[in-house]
Design a protein around this nucleic acid. Structure first.
Lengths: 162, 162
DNA sequence: CTATTTAGTAAACCACTCTTGACTATCTTC
DNA sequence: GAAGATAGTCAAGAGTGGTTTACTAAATAG
């Protein structure tokens, strides 16, 4: 293959690759979300790892070991994250009445407010996206994305032979 | 707001948030891509940061300083990444004929093959996605994603007031 | 020609994220 | 009630992904 042909392929791939656009969009969106959350909560120590913790914490509280299992990392690592979030006032540890060894990690009052702010942000972002894409395209986009995630999670044949 | 109402909001937000699905999809896709690239190239030292380097390297070669500017990090940091890629045999440094101080970082023969494998992977993935979504939904998905990225990059009003 | 800027390198250092191993306290099982 | 499993903590440390400061060699402006 000539260099020219190769270059053409390369440029086309760069311009067209859905995966590439997906990566970049996710990265930009994530960065914006963190920046906005930091500003709204006034908590500059907040990092992406902390927000990754949020969706795994049940409202009634979740044990450290359970969190570690859900996130796929060691309980020591989760422990440190939780400790930092407690320091910021977003989480609290309460004894688990069902087990004297265990503690439940749950949102503090302030943490619930922060969570609300985050959800409000995601909701507002979605609204603005819908305004620009139009409702039907937005719905189609959401459905396709959901399907993609489902395939990534549950369809090993997607990568078969690669 | 009652706890029940809050829980309902939370579950709904978790299930519905396009942003959340986007994050998760991007992360899974990225992990799979790295794993596959590692396997195909037989290079276990390959990390995500290395692949992040790829799209910034022009075929004719790119100076370290230019790479650093494009990636938004220090040239020393890029230098280390490049050094590792040279060690793996994917990149090479050649003197820049237009400037005796400068060197051009470019793909080695092996690196070009690796790049091909990567592009082939993305292409194949896209094909399989299209098979499952159908051509029209795939095209709509791609367009919406492109629009989203464009907004994230060039439309500051998207986050106005958040 | 000299002074300044620029390309790249070298070394020290730092924050972050995660791991391993050891330990205490409590629970469960038999 | 003893033995083993489990929840959480503590301490040390490894790997990653950067930064800053200082340097050299070459280019460029005056």
């Amino acid at each position: 293959m000539t260099t020219e042909a190769f270059r053409h392929d390369l440029e086309r791939a760069k311009r067209d690759s859905t995966a590439q656009i997906l990566f970049k969009s996710a990265r930009l969106l994530n960065e914006s979300a963190i920046a906005i959350l930091r500003r709204r909560t006034g908590e500059s120590r907040l990092r992406a790892t902390h927000t990754a913790l949020f969706p795994h914490i049940d409202l009634e509280g979740t044990r450290l070991t359970e969190l570690a299992a859900r996130m796929g990392i060691s309980k020591q690592a989760v422990g440190q994250l939780v400790e930092e979030m407690v320091g910021m006032g977003f989480l609290e540890r309460v004894p688990d009445p069902r087990d004297g060894r265990a503690k439940l990690v749950r949102f503090s009052e302030e943490g619930r407010l922060g969570l609300f702010a985050g959800l409000a942000f995601l909701g507002e972002l979605e609204t603005r996206l819908t305004e620009r894409l139009g409702p039907s395209r937005m719905q189609a986009f959401h459905e396709s994305l959901t399907l993609l995630l489902d395939m990534l999670e549950h369809d090993p044949s997607l990568f078969e032979g690669l």
